[in-house]
Simulated scan of single mutants.
Amino acid sequence: MITLIGTNLAKKGLVFTFNGGAKKCESCRFSNTCLNLEKGRKYEITEVKKVTHKCPVHKDGRVQTIEVKPATIRAAIETRKAYHGSTIIFRTEECEEECENYDICHPEGLYDDDTCKIEEIGPKLSCKNNYDLTEVILNH
């Protein structure tokens, strides 16, 4: 996918979460290109193009053309579903925010009922709520 990002952020391999545009973006002629990503999702820059445009929103006053792909996401899933290469329907567990695993159990960029492929299997996790969880890397 082609999109635009502030020139100071345009670096191959950068992972970012798209949070939507500013009020000023609505009337911009580049809004269809700049705001074409899904809000709340994580993306990885795969290529940085030479083309730049003026932008009143970004710090350095310019945006750069980039190519992105959905980023892989570290998450916790039920151990019984953790098989490398398999496809799962992601769902969060009901748990407490104070838990040390909260961020991995509720990862930014994933929503309940997302279809994901398991790219890597990590260690088993300890859980205050006694869920049998394993850390995985998911591709949405």
Rank of each mutant, 00 (worst) to 15 (best):
N19V: 00
N19G: 09
N19Y: 00
N19A: 01
N19R: 03
G20M: 11
A22R: 07
K24F: 04
K24E: 15
K24A: 15
K24T: 09
C25M: 10
C25L: 06
C25R: 09
E26V: 06
E26S: 12
E26W: 14
S31F: 13
N32C: 06
N32Y: 05
N32H: 14
N32L: 11
T33K: 02
T33Q: 11
T33A: 08
T33Y: 13
L35P: 02
L35G: 01
N36S: 07
L37A: 01
L37E: 08
E38D: 10
G40T: 03
R41G: 01
R41H: 00
K42E: 10
K42M: 01
Y43T: 03
E44S: 05
I45G: 02
I45M: 12
I45Q: 07
E47W: 07
E47N: 12
E47H: 13
K49G: 01
K49Y: 15
K49I: 05
K50A: 12
K50P: 06
V51T: 08
V51I: 08
V51W: 07
T52Q: 11
H53W: 14
K54W: 07
K54S: 14
K54R: 09
K54D: 12
K54Y: 08
C55A: 12
C55Y: 13
P56R: 07
P56C: 05
P56H: 09
V57S: 04
V57H: 01
D60Q: 09
D60Y: 13
G61H: 10
R62D: 13
T65V: 14
T65L: 15
T65Y: 05
I66N: 00
I66C: 03
I66Y: 02
V68Q: 06
V68F: 06
V68M: 02
V68A: 07
P70K: 15
A71D: 03
A71E: 07
T72G: 00
T72Q: 04
I73D: 07
I73E: 08
R74I: 12
A75V: 09
A75M: 06
A75E: 09
A75K: 02
A76T: 07
A76Q: 04
A76V: 02
A76G: 08
I77Y: 04
I77K: 03
E78Q: 11
T79V: 03
T79P: 02
T79K: 11
R80Q: 13
R80I: 08
A82W: 05
A82N: 08
Y83W: 06
Y83C: 03
H84C: 04
H84Q: 15
H84K: 15
H84L: 14
G85Y: 09
S86H: 11
S86K: 14
S86Q: 09
T87M: 08
T87A: 04
I88N: 00
I88W: 05
I88A: 07
I88Q: 01
I88V: 06
F90R: 00
F90Q: 04
R91K: 10
